[in-house]
């Protein structure tokens, strides 16, 4: 079965959130991958939409480069709402 390609499976839940990675399946082709993913990951109405992507087509960042990769956002505290101190009278904003 491992000579069938591996597909990564992404499911969108009913609540309109983004597709989320849930695991993987082996399948002879992408149509079968959708069917296998349905049987495996949505037995209880977990989703309203399934994406399958050949695992070999995914490019991932390397964990060893984590620091340099995410470094540009580390020193930009002003991107966060909590950076801006406002007087109490403003109330919730």
């Amino acid at each position: 079965m491992a000579d069938w390609p591996l597909f990564e499976v992404f499911i969108r839940s009913k609540h309109g959130l983004n597709h989320k990675h849930v695991g993987s399946v082996h399948a002879a082709d992408r149509c079968m991958a959708i069917e296998n993913a349905r049987e495996l990951y949505t037995r209880r109405n977990e989703g309203v939409s399934i994406w399958v992507v050949p695992a070999s087509e995914i490019t991932a960042s390397s964990p060893d480069e984590k620091e340099p990769l995410f470094d540009p956002s580390n020193d930009k505290v002003y991107r966060h709402a909590s950076f801006y101190k406002l007087p109490k009278e403003v109330g919730h904003m």
Binding site: A28, D29, C31
Partner: peptide, 12 residues
């Protein structure tokens, strides 16, 4: 499993 592979190839 063999039939599934053959069918996938045919579909392609």
């Amino acid at each position: 499993r063999e039939a599934a592979v053959a069918y996938a190839a045919k579909r392609q």
